[in-house]
């Protein structure tokens, strides 16, 4: 938790140093165009805060089952008739408070370095955060199966998170990236979620004008949920064979 907060805060501090001390607020016209005239620090802080929420949710949901496997408790879990979704929902509820705490810490530091977060405590912002958490949860289920398949957490999670940092438009507008990467970025729910969050928080846009982004998040969530469910069922069969076989 501490290291995730440190990483989130550092993600703000770096651009802060670059923006204030090195470049003295000298942004180019492309940024204003791509970010719809948003203030740079606000833009970065919102991206970083949602990224912390994504990393936290993905990590906790993704690692839940493989942690059980490593600690030898998965055997007991598989023997029970519990609904698997209830298990993941339990993990989500357990970790949401912590994830929101991390999110809060990063936004608080962001406010200190000058980000304008006036719309954070609005129903719209809360709805976007809930939708984003749901999409990260769905992706986490797919990630959980991937981790069980590779029997690895460290390489998988770090490669995923570093790739998301690069392509999802957290620190800079997506348009700066080569076209191929911009398309690739669309497979991560974080990309539309960050755009939506910024539209709501910076421009106070209503959700109805962002339907396209909302549908993209819902669609991606559905796809990840489907992949995760099917894959998990296959993995469970294999696990049962390997543990009890």
């Amino acid at each position: 938790m501490v290291s995730r907060i440190v990483t989130g805060v550092t993600q703000i501090i770096f651009p802060y140093f670059m923006y204030h001390y090195y470049i003295h607020g000298n942004l180019n016209s492309e940024f204003h165009e791509y970010a719809n005239g948003a203030d740079y620090m606000t833009y970065v802080v919102l991206g970083s805060a949602l990224n912390v929420l994504a990393v936290s949710t993905l990590m906790n949901i993704g690692r839940a089952l493989i942690t059980e496997l490593r600690e030898g408790t998965l055997e007991t879990l598989l023997m029970t008739p519990m609904p698997r979704y209830a298990y993941f929902c339990g993990c989500l509820l357990e970790q949401t408070a912590r994830a929101l705490l991390e999110f809060g810490a990063v936004t608080a530091v962001g406010a200190l370095v000058g980000a304008d977060l006036g719309y954070l405590f609005s129903v719209r912002a809360a709805a976007v955060i809930l939708l984003a958490v749901f999409s990260f949860f769905c992706m986490g289920i797919a990630l959980s199966s991937l981790m069980l398949y590779t029997r690895d957490t460290y390489l998988t999670q770090n490669t995923l998170f570093i790739t998301m940092n690069l392509v999802c438009g957290i620190m800079y507008p997506l348009q700066y990236l080569p076209a191929g990467l911009q398309y690739a970025a669309q497979i991560f729910p974080l990309t539309p979620a960050v755009s939506l969050f910024r539209n709501v928080m910076i421009e106070n846009q209503s959700l109805s004008v962002n339907q396209l982004l909302i549908w993209q998040i819902v669609l991606l969530s559905g796809v990840y949920l489907l992949i995760g469910t099917v894959w998990y069922k296959k993995m469970e069969l294999k696990l049962v064979e390997s543990i009890f076989g």
């Binding site: 770096f14 470049i23 000298n26 942004l27 940092n165 690069l166 620190m171 800079y172």
Partner: peptide
């Protein structure tokens, strides 16, 4: 990957 992330983080600057 980290290198290119920082490289692109400079892109908004003049």
């Amino acid at each position: 990957l980290g290198f290119f992330e920082v490289y692109y983080a400079y892109k908004p600057f003049e």
